[in-house]
């Protein structure tokens, strides 16, 4: 029951599994918001106290330290998004877990591509139609998740080519 390190790996393995066993394989995605248990809260508090009591000499130099503001509160919920491909016939189970919001649209887009394999649609059409739709969605996501306006401008100056190349690499 492996957890893959990258979503790409998960996608490749899942698509292989789907090709081999398209009828029995199912993909479950779980979005979960968990309240930390009391022991977890204690642990976090302890950690924070420890950090606060330590002499802060290192950050005095050049690097400003943002952590104090971004440090999670002890009672903060844990939000995760887990993808699981499971084939009950062979018992294969492939998993990937993330806590990053900007990955969701890409991952669900991947689910769509895998859905085509599931439906038994030819893959050739995937190459023609799906990437276009994907790209549109991704761009929308970027705007929403928000890149800062300044970052967007910088990107435009640097030339869209570089950005696009990068995105492709991620997929």
């Amino acid at each position: 029951m492996p957890y893959f390190k990258t979503s790409k790996e998960w996608y490749e393995q899942s698509s292989l599994l789907l090709k081999a066993r398209p009828t029995s394989t199912r993909i479950t995605s779980k979005y979960s918001v968990l309240k930390p248990s009391s022991s977890k809260i204690k642990k976090r508090q302890k950690y924070d106290d420890k950090k606060a009591s330590r002499p802060t000499e290192a950050p005095r130099a050049t690097s400003p330290h943002p952590p104090p503001s971004t440090q999670p509160q002890p009672e903060e919920v844990t939000v995760t998004f887990t993808l699981k491909t499971y084939d009950p016939d062979s018992g294969t189970c492939l998993q990937y877990e993330t806590n990053k919001g900007n990955e969701v649209s890409r991952l669900v887009g991947n689910l769509g591509k895998l859905g085509r394999c599931m439906a038994g649609l030819p893959e050739v059409i995937v190459d023609l139609s799906a990437p276009a739709a994907e790209a549109k969605v991704d761009e929308g996501g970027d705007v929403n998740m928000g890149g800062v306006a300044a970052a967007g401008k910088a990107d435009a100056k640097a030339g869209g080519g570089g950005g696009k190349k990068k995105k492709k690499g991620k997929k």
């Binding site: 979005y31 939000v79 990053k100 919001g101 969701v104 669900v108 887009g109 689910l111 996501g141 998740m145």
Partner: peptide, 15 residues
């Protein structure tokens, strides 16, 4: 579906 998930799954870490 992608849009619905993006809107619905709040609380995940921002970029």
């Amino acid at each position: 579906y992608v849009d619905a998930c993006k809107v619905g799954m709040t609380g995940l870490k921002k970029r």
